[in-house]
Design a protein around this nucleic acid. Sequence first.
DNA 1: TTGCATCTACGAACCTCTTCGTATATACCC
DNA 2: GGGTATATACGAAGAGGTTCGTAGATGCAA
Lengths: 126, 126
Amino acid sequence: MGEPKLPKPTESELGILRVLWARGPSTVREVHEALADGGGYTTVLKLMQIMTDKGLVVRDESQRAHVYSARASEQRTQRQLVTDLVERAFGGSPARLAMQALSTKRTSPEELAELRKLLDAMEGEP
Amino acid sequence: MGEPKLPKPTESELGILRVLWARGPSTVREVHEALADGGGYTTVLKLMQIMTDKGLVVRDESQRAHVYSARASEQRTQRQLVTDLVERAFGGSPARLAMQALSTKRTSPEELAELRKLLDAMEGEP
DNA sequence: TTGCATCTACGAACCTCTTCGTATATACCC
DNA sequence: GGGTATATACGAAGAGGTTCGTAGATGCAA
């Protein structure tokens, strides 16, 4: 009963979802304009129609210009993508992915502090 | 001049690379047998031929059964995949990916300690 | 040498994803 | 109403990835 399993979004679909997360419910035109390199208008339209079929977005048809919203939250989708990558490339160890991520680039002191808090919480509550 | 940029491996290609990283240089047969669900023998062969063209693996043809090796290390490939995901889904913040990864599953005390060491090192050396 | 097992090479079919042209409906303005 | 702008719907083409059948080469054993 929890949430239905949504398919993993493709590259282009993820781009559209990012716009929807940032802007909230939006029309095809709005998404198309927000997307710098999203291709032509009908391309974005088609993608969003397909995403509707897949259940990645929901469509409100009460207006002439349909309004689309992301079905899964950004965080939930991130969790899905991370879990997938952990399985496929990190032998199932999220910690190894985390370390790889941190070694990659510089991270701000604020984020470091947050990470430390997270570690504390994880140790405190086995 | 550093290393040539290799393409991002696809799903199936990553499965083959994982075998090569684990086993070291291997023949098609060995990879095929290590892959539980890798499809038929010729499927694996074809994939590895394509991977050779792409430069993902190198092929030693001195034996009748060619011997393939991964061209990029596991770590380098992991870095590539992580960087890609960070850009596509985490707004370029590796720390946010790391936190998402850690929130996902339980992590062993050993790994937690390693992460802590990594954080210490990052704070020590701005 | 003949036959069998095993290997590579190649091409075709199929699927998904992406892209776009075109057709059609709808609102709005004059 | 007529024309224009803007929507959706649909189909088709192309690119990339996956799968596999079949053909042809090679090594080996009897």
